[in-house]
Amino acid sequence: MIEINKLHKSYDMGSSSLHVLKGINFCVDDGELVAIMGSSGSGKSTLLNILGMLDSADNGTYDLDKIRIENLDENTAAEYRNKFLGFVFQSFNLINYKNALENVALPLYYQGIPRKVRQKTALSFLEKVGLKDWAAHLPSELSGGQKQRVAIARALASKPKVLLADEPTGALDSNTSIEVMALIQQINNEGKTILVVTHEHDIAKMCKRIVHLKDGIIVEDKKIKQNILKNV
């Protein structure tokens, strides 16, 4: 599903430049649940942003579902993000003046899907994350865990090939974290490819594979025995 080769990325820091990714080679198959680990500054978020086409690499290749991702203009990037990728952020990034249903329906709006269909689809995804009854609530009326589940429903709504989660439990307490991870496991079990960036070992162990990043290179990449959570 994802294939990257000799990926390099550096940032200009005025006079010097900061080399963040120093040649990453990395493949993800269909249906995997991968944790990308590393301390802060290891380059894990940068890698995820490049995978998410939110940022571009300096060097190296990136194929997503056999499509070469390079030299994207803004419009194509937007289109690919919409079609191929679902994002889950640490800070949820829900639009505060839209209720849960409207937030979930937003990616469908950018696909040009009519309003009625959008709402129906969005509602089915809210149901999937167990928040059907909260459809009309604004984000400010939801708990952290609920917000993240709305965000996951939103990421799934456009039926992406890959779900990218950047510290999805970073802002949640441990019980809620487990709820959210259980949901992620469930979605993964239904066949969705998911990448989770985290610095917490507990969370990483709930995935099927751990990729360890340190100073811009992969130092460890192993399949693990998944810590399967009971569905809450």
Partner: peptide, 12 residues
């Protein structure tokens, strides 16, 4: 930014 991440084009 959220809208762009969700697939909004700049012109949009």
């Amino acid at each position: 930014g959220v809208r762009k991440a969700l697939g909004a084009k700049p012109s949009e």
